[in-house]
Simulated scan of single mutants.
Amino acid sequence: MYLQGSSPAPYIQKMISAAEVYANKVKMEFEDKDPIHCEWVDSYMYLLQQVHHYVEEYHAAGITWNLTGDTPENFADANRSSVTSAKPVSSSSTTSVGGGSSIPSPPPPPPGPSPTLDESTVKHASVAGDMKAVFRSLNIGESVTAGLKKVDQSQMTHMNPGLRGSNMVKDIGSKKIDYPTPTGPTQSSFNKPARTALEGNKWIVENYSDNQSIVISDTSIDQTVYIYGCKNSTIQVKGKVNVVTMDCCTRCGIAVDSVVSTIDIVNSRSFAFQIFQITPIITIDKSEGGQIYLSRESLGVDILTSKSSAINFLFPPAEGTTGDTDFTEIPVPEHFKSNIVSGRIVTMPV
């Protein structure tokens, strides 16, 4: 990717920032399903970072060439002569090397597997033996019924018409065994510990509950913030970061200074999100009951929503406005009307 252009390092950094958007979507989808996809994405992002470091150190202004090197023809001839001069390894028991020492030949192959019995023969013999035992027991005569249980008169249907209504005969001599009812795991066993950690270039904030003082201050432009599984908590992200994602959160408030790429809100309920400076894109998916506060710098944001309801955007009045300085609240449309115009579907909010 750095073969073109006179400044490949900044170009690679832009591609890394763009790839992180899709990498985060893969992680959100497969984090609880199949972690191998998350590991692959982390390895790929690490590879891109290493490529960026290498290009920045050795090819900052483009690919550098060895101006004092040999011609391609001489280089190819040198490699061809080195290959043809190599001696093949002898197939005898030993091979001479240098000053007379020898290398022993490899050991013989391992012995074959031990003989096994034919399962079909054994199965046929066992079945034949069982059938012979059955015929021998039938030829005993009258004593063949000696081991049968005697039926009491109270269990005979022809003598008790009340038993004919059901096809089951009650066993008087049997006792009912009360097995213990298995109990499911308690709710506390599913609770995971809350943590805030920096893994590579990704801040992880997860499993907080009733915490109003979570602050991430040591941030940089190439880092992402992933907030997951928090309830009734407030998280503040200071500085400029690349991506901020809120996933499966309820009654949470998020405050960020500035975002380079996008803000993603997924599977969240009753949340509030405030941007103090600027963000280019806000995506909301499968969420409801959200209040998003914009700054004057972020009024040109692109808003993408899907499968969401009760989403409201609030923004301050224009500069120089006198009088009422409260935020203006506008809901995101949820009802639409579509028409077919000139072979195309035209959709308008209603």
Rank of each mutant, 00 (worst) to 15 (best):
Y2I: 01
Q4S: 14
K14L: 03
I16Y: 04
A18H: 15
A18W: 05
V21L: 08
N24S: 01
V26R: 12
H37N: 14
V41A: 15
Y44H: 10
V51F: 11
V51R: 12
H53D: 13
H59M: 10
G69D: 12
N74S: 10
F75Y: 09
T84Y: 14
S85H: 02
A86P: 04
K87R: 13
T94Y: 11
S96Y: 06
G99D: 12
S102K: 07
P104V: 03
S105Y: 07
S105P: 06
P106T: 11
P107Y: 10
P108R: 07
P108K: 06
P113C: 08
P115L: 08
E119I: 02
V122I: 14
A125V: 07
S126A: 08
A128E: 11
D130W: 05
M131N: 04
M131Y: 08
F135N: 09
S137Q: 11
N139T: 09
N139R: 10
N139C: 06
G141N: 07
G141H: 13
G147K: 12
K149S: 14
V151D: 04
S154R: 15
Q155C: 03
M156F: 10
H158Q: 14
L163Y: 10
N167Q: 04
D171W: 11
K175R: 09
Y179H: 08
P182K: 07
T183S: 13
G184C: 05
P185F: 13
T186Y: 13
Q187D: 11
S188Y: 12
K192D: 14
K192H: 15
A194W: 05
L198R: 08
G200E: 04
G200L: 07
G200N: 11
I204Q: 15
V205W: 02
D210W: 05
N211R: 06
I214W: 00
I216D: 03
D218A: 02
N232S: 07
S233N: 01
S233E: 01
K238I: 00
V243A: 12
V244H: 08
D247G: 07
R251W: 02
R251G: 02
D257L: 03
T262H: 10
T262F: 02
T262L: 04
I263M: 14
D264L: 10
I265R: 07
V266Q: 14
F271G: 11
A272F: 05
A272E: 09
F276T: 01
F276I: 00
Q277W: 06
I281C: 13
I282G: 02
D285V: 08
G289C: 03
Q291G: 01
L294P: 13
S308Y: 09
A310V: 01
L314E: 06
F315G: 04
P316V: 00
P316G: 06
A318M: 03
E319P: 06
P333K: 09
I340E: 07
R344V: 00
M348H: 10
P349S: 15
V350K: 13
V350I: 04
V350L: 14
